[in-house]
């Protein structure tokens, strides 16, 4: 077995300011990695570099493509990179409005990704869209409604359906439960947990919420000031943190 994603010495500078420095790791098929750390620690910069949206200053991101094996994602052509992000990858934004098209119906938002990979039969696209709305617990009679009429939690579930309909092997998530009520969060987390397990997805989840990380991630990477300070099995990092910064993070969590 080979890793799905291979990251080597990844660094991103913003002029003289550091985004993230010298990040190296392998992600294996079906593995969910959480990136935790406070605001400004470089989590989102790293996620953007990994997901082909921000070119790194140094280092490599290689992905095990279906057709040609390991490929440097920034060395491949723009067209292939776009195809990869539309089919084999999914990107779940913190704000679902960034990942959805608000002017078209819920069904069209899901169907559009299918059409991008060549689906043309209207009936088949609609039935797949219905199936995915059901998987993310959105009632079938909302399929023709505009996303603007959806609640925050429903929008996030719709964004997830839109991403998963093409059966990606790797999904990037940026604070997927951020900005949602806790009760809505719990429902979404349970859904994400089930989907990731049932579909065998690999995922990289950025979150500042350690409880979310514990529920979703197999392993964690703790970032501080652009650098990775601790890595390991999720429950081990949270229950027996070694780095002073991780200990501070874990001990700062309020329990109700």
């Amino acid at each position: 077995m080979t890793p799905l994603l291979k990251v080597t010495g990844l660094t991103r500078m913003y002029g003289s300011r550091l985004g993230c420095r010298d990040v190296t790791f392998d992600l294996w098929p079906g593995e969910v990695m959480g990136i935790v750390g406070e605001s400004g620690s470089g989590k989102t910069t790293l996620l953007n570099c990994l997901s082909a949206r921000l070119e790194p200053t140094a280092g490599r991101v290689e992905y095990d493509t279906r057709e040609a094996g390991m490929q440097d994602i920034y060395a491949m052509g723009e067209a292939r990179r776009r195809m990869l992000t539309r089919t084999d990858w999914g990107i779940v934004h913190q704000n679902p409005r960034d990942g959805l098209r608000l002017a078209v119906s819920a069904g069209a938002n899901v169907g559009e990704r299918l059409m991008a990979v060549g689906a043309r039969h209207y009936g088949a696209i609609r039935s797949q869209a219905l199936q995915w709305l059901d998987m993310v617990e959105i009632d079938a009679d909302r399929i023709d409604d505009l996303p603007l009429t959806f609640s925050g939690g429903m929008l996030q579930r719709l964004q997830i359906a839109r991403n998963l309909v093409t059966h990606p092997r790797l999904v990037f998530m940026d604070e997927p439960t951020g900005g949602l009520d806790v009760s809505v969060q719990a429902r979404l987390l349970d859904l994400l947990r089930r989907l990731v397990t049932d579909l065998g997805l690999a995922a990289i989840v950025v979150t500042h919420d350690l409880a979310v990380a514990r529920l979703l991630a197999h392993r964690l990477m703790v970032m501080r000031r652009g650098e990775v300070v601790e890595t390991g099995l999720t429950d081990q990092v949270l229950d027996d943190p070694h780095h002073p910064y991780t200990q501070l993070l874990v001990s700062s969590v309020l329990t109700p």
Partner: peptide, 9 residues
Amino acid sequence: LRCLYGNCK
């Protein structure tokens, strides 16, 4: 016990 389970390093 937690070390045996990998929960403690």
